[in-house]
Design a protein around this nucleic acid. Structure first.
Length: 407
RNA sequence: CGGGGCAUAGUGAAACGGCUAUCACGAGUCUUUUGGGAAGAUUUAUUCUGAGUUCGAAUCUCAGUGCCCCGACCA
């Protein structure tokens, strides 16, 4: 994509109504725009990140047998009354209609799946969606970390017994770590024990350490498991350790054994007459965008891990009106594109080198490639990874292998 | 939902109750520039909304709305 065609503009100053690093940077770089508190537009760059994350999540969900569906956001009161959750205050209700906007989907998927799961041999089944959720948060905050409208992946599993659920639960756990690995935050993300409701003693959250987080967790150095403040006891349930490291963290995912909490009110039974055992597993897609921005950025701007970056390469031409340099840059742009690299090409004629470099750092693509008269004198381009201090000259003839190696 | 703060151009700021609301960046046009946010010329506003006080309100008062932060809440 040519940057001259991109309709978004970068900002030198952050809007004063955003205090969190993730919102300031994402807005300054033109990834998102705020419509209302906790409600954001996803602009071309931000939408590309969102799609990348969705694709990563999709792949991992499919790998563990997940079947993707899409449920409505508009949901009837009747379903929620069956489980006693129509009165939940976070639910947006539509005035004069017996409808509310979905903030989770147990009430929708459970009756839906009843028409398809008829006997024990139909179990287990795993069904997920990636969809916009609505929650009327009493206090939206911290940019994308706590929104009223947000994208979420919710997976629901259906089992004939607890053992089956337990096995699948462990698979999801692993899939989640794979996802956070690809998103570049694996090292900061801890499996965390949290309140589990009635069916199991604990549920598990995936908490990413950041001062911007709203939860407090205690990490046990013995086993590497964390415990949410809400359920912390004297000893670590994992290894019996008693020393902990306290950290602020943001919950990027959770997995939860539901048991028959929802199959009972809807009467979801298998042929043996047993209530189906369920699990649910969420990942906040848009919250992940905010978390990556918050955790991995530096003073210059965003830093995207290659798998989620909107573009792999930020190509910059410093032609300063030199037609030959410009043409050569265009040619390199085509070469990279033909090799299937995703490239954003700063072809703007009215920008100084400084502006281009600063925008490049702010947007945070993994690799910067500069073409100028200076580099062309040596038949070269200059490449630099986003976080590297120094750049290096490489021959244009070797550009594809070098770019491949660097991202 | 309790407490605190803020509201002026696309963004960030300035303006004692008194001159045509000022400056920077961005954006538009022109000229000159150019390896880390260039220079000059020129253009760019319903001062959040409503009411009030006053000869006169961006500025003071009241109400509303929005946003940010702290807390409560967070299947």
């Amino acid at each position: 994509m040519k940057q001259s065609q991109l309709f978004t503009k970068t900002l030198k100053d952050a809007p004063k109504d955003e205090k969190s690093a993730n919102a300031q940077l994402l807005i300054r770089a033109g990834f998102v725009d705020k419509l209302a508190s906790g409600v954001y537009d996803y602009l071309p760059l931000g939408l590309r990140v969102k799609k990348k994350i969705e694709e990563i999540v999709r792949e991992e969900m499919n790998n563990i047998g997940g079947q993707e569906i899409l449920m409505p956001s508009l949901t009837p009161k009747e379903n929620w009354e069956k489980t006693g959750r129509w009165t939940v205050e976070e639910m947006y209700k539509i005035k004069d209609e017996e409808m509310g906007l979905g903030w989770t989907h147990e009430e929708i998927i459970t009756p839906m799946i009843m028409r398809h799961i008829l006997s024990p041999k139909d179990l287990p089944k795993y069904v997920y969606q990636i969809q916009t959720k609505f929650r009327n948060e009493p206090r939206a905050k911290s940019g994308l970390l706590r929104c009223r409208e947000f994208a979420m992946k919710d997976l629901y599993s259906f089992h004939s017994d607890e053992k089956q659920l337990d096995d699948y639960y462990e698979k999801v756990k692993q899939a989640y770590f794979n996802i956070f690995e690809k998103c570049g935050i694996r090292n900061e993300t801890f499996l965390t024990l949290a309140s589990g409701g009635t069916f199991s003693e604990y549920s598990h959250e995936f908490q990413t350490i950041t001062p911007a987080g709203e939860d407090t967790i205690y990490i046990c150095p013995g086993c590497g498991i964390a415990i949410n403040k809400e359920v912390k006891k004297e000893k670590c349930p994992g290894c019996g350790g008693i020393k902990f490291r306290e950290e602020k963290a943001i919950e990027v995912g959770n997995i939860f054994k539901l048991g028959s909490r929802y199959s009972e009110p809807f009467g979801l039974k298998n042929e043996n007459g047993d209530f189906v055992i369920m699990g649910c597993y969420g990942i906040g897609i848009t919250r992940l965008i905010g978390t990556i921005a918050e955790v991995l950025s530096d003073t210059k701007g965003l830093v995207w891990p290659a798998p989620v970056a909107p573009f792999a390469v930020h190509l910059i031409e410093l032609s300063m009106g030199d037609v030959e340099v410009k043409e050569k840059a265009e040619e390199i742009y085509r070469i990279l594109q033909n090799a299937n690299f995703e490239v954003i090409y700063d072809d703007r004629d009215d920008k100084t080198a400084g502006e281009k470099f600063n925008d490049c750092d702010l947007m945070g693509m993994p690799l910067r490639v500069v073409v100028s008269k200076k580099t062309l004198e040596k038949d070269s381009v200059e490449i630099k990874k986003r976080q590297a201090d120094l750049s290096q000259l490489i021959k244009i003839a070797d550009i594809l292998s070098n770019v491949q190696k660097s991202i």
